[in-house]
Design a protein around this nucleic acid. Sequence first.
DNA 1: ATCGGTTTTGTAAGCGATTACTAAATTGAA
DNA 2: TTCAATTTAGTAATCGCTTACAAAACCGAT
Lengths: 336, 336
Amino acid sequence: MMGVTIKDIAKQAGVSPATVSRVLANKAGFFGAQTAQKVRQTAKELGYRKNTAATELVTQRSHDLAVIVNTTKTNFATQIIEGIQATAFPADLNVIILYAGDGDAERQRRALETVIERSVRGILLLSVDLAPENLALLQSTEIPYCFLSISFEGPKMPFITSDDWQVGYQATKYLLERGHRRIGLAAVDTQVSITGQLREAGYRQALAEAGITPRPTWIHPGDYSYPAGQAAMQAYGAHPDVTAVLAGSDLAGIGVMNQARMLGLMVPVDLSVMSIDGTDLCDIVQPQLTSLTQSFYDMGVAGVNRMLATETPQQQRFTPIQVVARDSVVDFVART
Amino acid sequence: MMGVTIKDIAKQAGVSPATVSRVLANKAGFFGAQTAQKVRQTAKELGYRKNTAATELVTQRSHDLAVIVNTTKTNFATQIIEGIQATAFPADLNVIILYAGDGDAERQRRALETVIERSVRGILLLSVDLAPENLALLQSTEIPYCFLSISFEGPKMPFITSDDWQVGYQATKYLLERGHRRIGLAAVDTQVSITGQLREAGYRQALAEAGITPRPTWIHPGDYSYPAGQAAMQAYGAHPDVTAVLAGSDLAGIGVMNQARMLGLMVPVDLSVMSIDGTDLCDIVQPQLTSLTQSFYDMGVAGVNRMLATETPQQQRFTPIQVVARDSVVDFVART
DNA sequence: ATCGGTTTTGTAAGCGATTACTAAATTGAA
DNA sequence: TTCAATTTAGTAATCGCTTACAAAACCGAT
């Protein structure tokens, strides 16, 4: 049952356990060349496997970086994770990913406790909206953490995300520049999440600067999902009061487009659709979705770098956004 | 820096560390009610956090189930993971997910070593094609493991997946039943992977039973990706020799459809397209993709159950497949 | 030969929990 | 009241590794 320990290697190689430990941990300058050779040799022969639990117990430090993702449904998470992987790997950090059920506080707690009790090196939370008690739990530890792709009011929470006000503002601005004046906002959570509120505020500001006051029917809040996009479009109806719709996510944008088709509307001829996110999905749907693209990969990179940094840099940081024009938005032309 | 230990609690509560351990680990029947009360109380007051490393060191057992995924790109992985989560959670197993770069043996090794050195309870590998040395590494441990959504020749490797021969056979059969006789096979890896070879064999058998011998141009191998689907369709050309195409994955199927559109072909009027997998993607594209749908969620469930089982059940198991008709396949009607 | 300095190695004390073993306290029956 | 059985609690060893400290071993220079 039990495996090979450094003592076994020590005995076999005729050295002390301390020496074995030093060689295997590569504490350069603390052992001779031929000793190292012999130790490594016997370690391999014996099929030695380090016991991480023992190491972490004594060093009080792990080489693991934990990533907690809210749900498997967020498709941009993979891009962030790729950025995380690419940055963590060379830094000799192992990335472990845990899913916390969407709004499930119990699962959040389990995921958090799992990584906290392991004393991971850092915790990155991908658009996780933590329940208050779980936030307290997270903050009660010494473990550095950073939220990704989600923002908070006030200066105390560390996060890296897009400037959501700018997201709403720039996207709306783009649609205005294309001649649209009656612009819808769909499947954005304007009720509870700060993200959604900021996006709506940016949207309203852009409209205001163009001298436009959005009618209540233009805004159909939702949870960024595909059904939310469908529902919003269903509400706009077959003769929408808007000529363009800004959707809260790519999936929501696709929901809007498909529902529009169901209603007999051609995108982009009868209705322009723009989505927020800019994931691969935009390229594979027809027509290809024009998007306000976020820098998800960069978020992952920046998140890991923050965990790596010894002194804490600025608490909050924004990653770039840009409009990527594809085929779902066209210049508005008045119908006769 | 350092945290609260059971000794601190013991001192504070006026009991021995052993008692604290028993209470906190809920070793029922080994402590009095009021003692338990007091211990739990002080543990909470002191903000105690269990040290998993210490526990695992002495118990030689972890509560973690490791899932190793080949790449972030496989979109069906999320379904499997959901099945895993749903089954592991009630069984008091924590699921940790690690990505191993697609074909990158080095990253595979890192991921494997990470979980092996932690003595996780079990390892589930999602369509990971392990390099030989890494397979040896995996097998050199006592840790139970099981491959998901990938198969192997011979009876020695434990896996749970769809019967890939049936996948090819059933899908092709379905297209034959819809009147098609010239059927393409696209973006399936018929070169190196056993999965692809089985699918092709099933495809050929179904055709053979209908008295058809596929022409070489009908089969365009690929890596199941979107570009592979595009490339295959590009090769079929604007006047394809086939009336229906079976694509290796949903993304590949979408690639086929989009490329067909580029070539001026209408799906499904000019060409029927069927994909293998049946993920959410099928429902959000236009036209909705008819698919040979796999039971990914069930694979996850079955995988966890196998890790949970004490006595090893059958090594290899197939999960159900079914044809889900949507809009991308229509009955073949000869053109005039 | 002696000495300070550098490498290299060994000894032993933990890290924080679990648990076998022992012992005290409590209980109930005779 | 006494004794055996049962609960409840304590003592101390242990898991496998790291590392402070001490001690050889080796070096050239005096």
